[in-house]
Amino acid sequence: MTRTHSRPLQQLGIALRILAAIPGGWAFSWGFVACGTAALVALGAPFHDAETALLMLGLLVFAGVFLWSFAARSVLRVCAVLVGGALLFNAAALLLQRAILS
């Protein structure tokens, strides 16, 4: 997007970025925490150690994607990555969990 866009389109862009940064970033980092925890448990780490490590990383990831939501050139790519990533991570967490528990 460039400066040549009209004002309502700019405002839509900002609104999308805010949505991407807060709920989008939250869903993405939630998935990251869940998937990472399950992966570490699959590798043999105790559950709470894995969870704690991922919570620390997850907060940094959240802050990172928050910044990226505004720094990135394309809003649509940001939305696609965050929504897609959230879905993939959460699905992977569930699959990993099923594999560990079976």
Binding site: W30, V33, A34, T37, A38, F47, E51, L55, G58, A93
Partner: peptide, 8 residues
């Protein structure tokens, strides 16, 4: 991020 009370 209460993953341990939701999907995990």
């Amino acid at each position: 991020f209460p993953v341990s009370q939701f999907q995990l």
